[in-house]
Structures are given as C-alpha cells and as structure tokens.
Amino acid sequence: MTQAAFSPLRTGTAPVRARRIAARLGRAMILGGMLLVSACGLPRSGPTKGQILSSSVERGGTTHIVNVDDRVNRAANYTPAYGFSADFRAASAVAADDIRPGDVLGLSIWENVDDGLLASMGSSSTQLSELQVDSQGYIFVPYAGRVLAAGNSPEELRRIITQKLETQTPDPQVMVTRVAGDGATVSVMGKVNSQGVFPIERPTRTLSAMLSRAGGVSIEPEIAVVTVKRGNSSGKVWLRDLYSNARNDIALRPGDVILVEEDERSFTALGALGGQTKVPLGNDQINAIEAVAMVGGLSTTLADPKGVFVLRDEPQSVARAVLGRQDIYGNQRVAYILDLTKPDGMFLARDFVIRDSDTVYVTEAPFVQWSKTLRSMLSPATEIASVNNSFD
C-alpha cells in the first residue's frame, strides 16, 4: 500500500532531474560563451609586448626589434641638423651699388648753355625720373641712346652717360641716383611682423638684417625656424642659431625667398601612458625619459616598464650601424626596446634621442589582462543568476 502510494512520485522524479541537468548545462554553456567573448573582446590600448616581438624580421615580420644598449645609442642618435650648405655660406654679399634689371633710376643732367639739348628754355637742368632698367639691363637716355646700366654702379653709369652726351653739348654734368632697388630684392613671408618684398640695400645684405627689416618674427624665438630658398636649393636654421653663430648669417642674393615658420617636429605617444597624443618636440633635442614625462609618465596601473618602445623608420646608413649589417638597403622599420626597471635602462633611456615622427609606445603589464579577464568573469554574475532563476 505504501509502495503503491509513493510510486507516482518516483516516476515523476526523472523529468525533474533531467530539467535540472539541462539547466546546469545551459548555465555552463552560457558562462563559457560569456567568458570566451570576454577573453576575445577585452579592451586594451594596443598590441602586447609579445605581439610586437612576434612581428620581428626574424619571425617573418617587417620590423627589426632592437634592445637599446650603449652601442645602439651611439649608432641611433643621429639627428638631422639644420644649417646652410657651403654654397650658401660661400656666397658673397651683394654690392649695394650694383645696378640690376628692374632697378629704377633717376637722372639729373645740367648743360653749360642757355639753350641745351635737353633743358627747356630758361632752365639749365633736366630731371629724368623713374627710368626702369629693362630685362636686358638697358635704359634709354635722350641723345645718349640705349645705355647699358646693369652691372655698373651709379658712378660708372654717370661717366658712361657723360661721355655719350659731351659730344653733343659742352661740359654736361650728370648725376645718377637709385630710386628703388627692385632689381635686387628678396621675399620675406611666414611668421614675421611685416611680410613683403624688400630690396637688398647696404643695411640689409644679410639674413638677420633682412629679418629685422621685416619687423622680426611674430612667434617665440625658441621655436622659430628660418628657411632660405635660392633657386632649386634651400637651407634652414634655428633662429637662435642664426644669432649665436655668425656663419649662419648668410649673405642674401637677388630672388631669395625667406620663410619663417614654427617648428613642426613632433612625436606621437601611445599606450599605457599618462596621455596619448601628438606632442611637439618643442626644442632642439629631447630624450626618451623626457618624452615619457611630457605626456604624464607611465600609467602606474597599466604600464609595463619593461615594454617601452620607440618606433621609427631609420635611413639605410643608420639602420646598418644599429643592426651591424651591411646587407640592409633602403629605409628600415625599427622598434627599439627600453627597460626602465633597471638603473642602466633609465640611463640608456635618458641618452636615447627622440626624433621627428617617432612613436613612443608603452605596452600594458601582463597582469592587466588577467585583471580585466577577472572583472569580465565577475561582472556577468547577476546575469548568470538571472538565467539560473529562469531555468529553475
């Protein structure tokens, strides 16, 4: 009687157990799926140190991985220098008195007769103003004809015109003046207080003097770069080097173009740093320690001090010196590794010069990914509990 009474309950127990087993399997599958998604999609600031190392040339990649030491520092610390070539420095100063095509001259002619060739009745002098020297270097003077002016000084041109006129009028007196120096000019543009085209005159025959003529620079002198374009050649110099080294104060030539601009050199900071941004270099030279400090230093909660990378494209000559190989051709991608956990590493980073267009990248510490994984496991706990309740 008792066995018959409880037999229906026993027969009903199997479906209940089956539902519970299915619920547990469902929860396990959901949890596993969530963990898989979490592990695959965990956010991070960039590639890990291992991923960068796996892209090395030795492992079939395109990047040379180089651990920085004293030898590497000596080979890699090449900084393209600003300065003028020997051709710029060897150019002699323009003679301020030389006449050139485009110059405008003024002539005053006195004749020793009452009724002269050029003078009007009752006057003994004639004023010929604004005679522009043509592209071939000539001017036209009545009764003297076409006279070559270019290449002569005003005094030499005065003698030439006098000789041509004295055969037609007795004892002519000629005076030549330069009205404007349009034939010997330079263009000054960019970050100056007064842009324009300025004549090369006696006080403005050098680069520094011409910049003064243009009102000086309109930006901070520490970041001002001066470029001079002459024909197909050009050279540039820091403004402060222009004034500190007389060799940089070059003589100007007609047609020079002077451009003053703000230094545009910069590096990019990425990864586990206090900031991720493009940073102007600011001055002539900074090192890796200064570069990290400029963006707030290493993130104390994320950064791996063993994984500080400086990424750059090295020219062939530098790449050969750094890698110690002569079979390197063309620019090479190089990833320099700095280990800031060692005293030597700090000194090496202090001696490593940052160049224009460098990328300073700091990887995350290995425990960071574990921490993120753990958080990703704990965060969906409420969702799992909700699923459990629904199955129950």
Results as ranks from 00 to 15, higher is better:
240 R>E: 12
213 R>M: 08
49 K>W: 06
48 T>I: 05
211 L>D: 05
385 A>I: 07
77 N>A: 01
377 M>C: 05
42 L>Q: 12
85 S>C: 10
259 L>A: 09
76 A>I: 00
198 F>I: 08
249 D>N: 15
80 P>A: 07
136 Q>K: 13
173 Q>K: 14
15 P>K: 07
255 G>P: 13
97 D>C: 02
167 T>A: 12
85 S>A: 11
340 L>Y: 01
227 T>H: 06
303 A>D: 07
150 A>Y: 02
388 N>D: 14
41 G>Y: 03
31 L>F: 06
211 L>E: 06
39 A>L: 10
318 V>Q: 09
193 N>A: 09
111 E>K: 04
229 K>V: 13
291 A>M: 01
15 P>R: 09
365 A>F: 04
194 S>M: 08
125 S>T: 12
374 L>K: 03
307 G>Q: 05
152 N>A: 06
219 I>F: 13
133 V>P: 09
326 Q>N: 14
98 D>N: 11
342 K>E: 15
170 P>Y: 08
362 V>K: 14
291 A>L: 02
40 C>L: 10
70 D>Y: 07
269 A>E: 02
62 T>H: 12
56 S>R: 15
249 D>W: 11
263 D>N: 13
135 S>L: 04
171 D>A: 12
3 Q>V: 11
50 G>L: 09
326 Q>H: 10
116 G>V: 03
3 Q>G: 05
339 D>S: 02
240 R>M: 10
31 L>K: 04
256 D>H: 06
39 A>T: 01
79 T>V: 15
264 E>A: 08
38 S>N: 02
82 Y>D: 02
268 T>S: 14
350 R>Q: 15
52 I>V: 14
370 W>D: 00
146 R>E: 10
200 I>W: 08
12 G>I: 00
192 V>T: 05
21 I>D: 10
165 L>I: 01
97 D>T: 11
1 M>P: 09
383 E>V: 12
247 R>W: 02
6 F>N: 08
107 L>M: 06
261 E>H: 15
96 A>I: 03
48 T>S: 15
343 P>E: 05
182 D>P: 02
374 L>D: 07
136 Q>C: 00
355 R>K: 14
184 A>R: 10
376 S>M: 02
142 P>S: 08
50 G>K: 07
219 I>W: 14
210 M>I: 04
162 T>F: 09
3 Q>I: 02
273 L>H: 04
290 E>H: 00
300 T>R: 14
93 A>N: 08
359 T>G: 08
329 Y>S: 14
90 A>M: 14
246 A>I: 09
245 N>Q: 15
373 T>V: 15
166 E>I: 00
38 S>A: 15
42 L>C: 04
100 R>D: 03
20 R>M: 13
26 G>C: 06
391 F>S: 07
239 L>R: 01
209 A>K: 05
151 G>N: 03
128 L>H: 01
358 D>A: 00
269 A>R: 03
366 P>N: 04
129 S>Y: 01
